[in-house]
């Protein structure tokens, strides 16, 4: 099913989609573009590159409550909190959708499945949007991301000459287009042709995961971490980072338990109650993060856990990003070394 709508009519589509679901869109929030639930008057920025934080928080929210508790005397009551809302994730770029598929393997394919994540994923219709103007930090090309096509999307959208073209690819996608049927006209576009130029930073990642298997004690780690500030920026903006924490919020009589994002870059992340910390310094933590992306994850899933979205390159206050790490570990084309 292929439909289209004039770009200046899109606000009507937002209103329609927001009626029956929570509609996440890239929205200008102050000086920052973030995926947020649409509300009237929101300034939608479909072409912005790239949202400051990846849209992973649609599926793995910064914080989600999953139980309420009541205590009285010695008795305790626990009640599950369920979130059943339908969601439309609109304007997800192909790199970010590929990253979400990487999270799917961790949260849905690995037993036991994470019901909170899985439910969100099942209740969400993803409208992916092909790229128009990547920024200088985009390097998705080396990770087999096609900036013009996101294979896992329910609806694949393209902005061409003042129109948004929408192709439904799944039943969920068809249902979405049918719901807005009266706002859409038929599209005749078959395939879109657009030259998307991204950089490769001179990287050559072939064989890197295999190579790193024996390089846990490589001297490169002794240098790479030095500029790290031990903040969590890289992990929080990253679309493939998924570490989390579980915490309680409330008082003795009642409250809730939630899970929230956490970061392997924080010193207390692995700190044990007795005082022992298996990753005590920045060196171990920087190594953990990059090894997880470049060796541990690929060992299980045969794919480097990076999609080249460029967010860590843009946001790290000291430019200690995954490209610098790959280069320091020798993942560079010979002529660039």
């Amino acid at each position: 099913m292929k439909k289209m709508i004039a770009a200046d009519e899109l606000a009507k589509l937002w209103i329609r989609l927001a009626e029956k679901s929570t509609l996440f869109l890239p929205v200008q929030d102050g000086p920052t573009v973030l995926y947020q639930p649409w509300k009237d008057g929101a300034q939608v920025e479909l072409e912005a590159f790239n949202s400051a934080i990846s849209p992973k928080d649609i599926f793995l929210p910064r914080e989600e409550t999953y139980l309420h508790y009541h205590c009285s005397g010695q008795s305790l009551e626990l009640a599950a909190v369920e979130d059943d809302r339908a969601v439309t994730a609109f304007g997800i770029h192909p790199c970010d959708l590929k990253a979400i598929e990487m999270l799917d393997r961790v949260f849905m394919e690995q037993e036991p499945a994470d019901s909170l994540y899985q439910k969100r994923r099942e209740k969400t219709t993803v409208v992916a949007l092909s790229c128009t103007k990547p920024d200088p930090f985009c390097f998705c090309g080396i990770f087999d991301v096609d900036p013009l096509d996101a294979p896992g999307a329910d609806v694949m959208a393209h902005l061409v000459d003042g129109y948004m073209h929408l192709e439904a690819r799944t039943e969920k996608g068809k249902a979405l287009l049918e719901e807005a049927g009266d706002l859409l006209e038929n599209s005749t576009i078959d395939k879109i042709e657009r030259e998307i130029k991204t950089t490769d930073f001179g990287l050559d990642i072939k064989g890197l995961p295999e190579d790193l298997k024996s390089r846990f004690d490589d001297p490169a780690w002794d240098e790479l971490y030095k500029s790290c500030l031990s903040c969590g920026v890289c992990t929080y903006v990253c679309p493939t980072c998924y570490c989390f924490d579980v915490e309680d919020y409330g008082h003795d009589a009642e409250g809730e338990r939630f899970r929230c994002w956490d970061s392997c870059m924080f010193g207390h992340f692995t700190q044990m109650a007795g005082g022992h910390n298996p990753r005590p310094s920045r060196k171990e933590r920087v190594r953990q993060r990059f090894m997880h992306k470049l060796q541990y994850y690929p060992e299980v899933y045969n794919e480097i856990a990076c999609v080249g979205c460029g967010r860590c390159l843009r946001s790290c206050p000291v430019n200690l990003d995954i490209v610098q790490a790959i280069k320091a570990l020798g993942g560079e084309k010979v002529e660039h070394r």
Binding site: V106, F107, Q110, P112, D114, Y242, C243, F244, D245, V246, D262, C264, F269, T270, Q271, M272, A273, P278, Q288, M291, H292, Q295, Y296, Y297, E299, V300
Partner: peptide
Amino acid sequence: LEMRMKCGVGKCGRCNLGS
């Protein structure tokens, strides 16, 4: 082994050791 753990189901990341 004893390590810090929050989820117990191999996802939260604290007790990750290689793969």
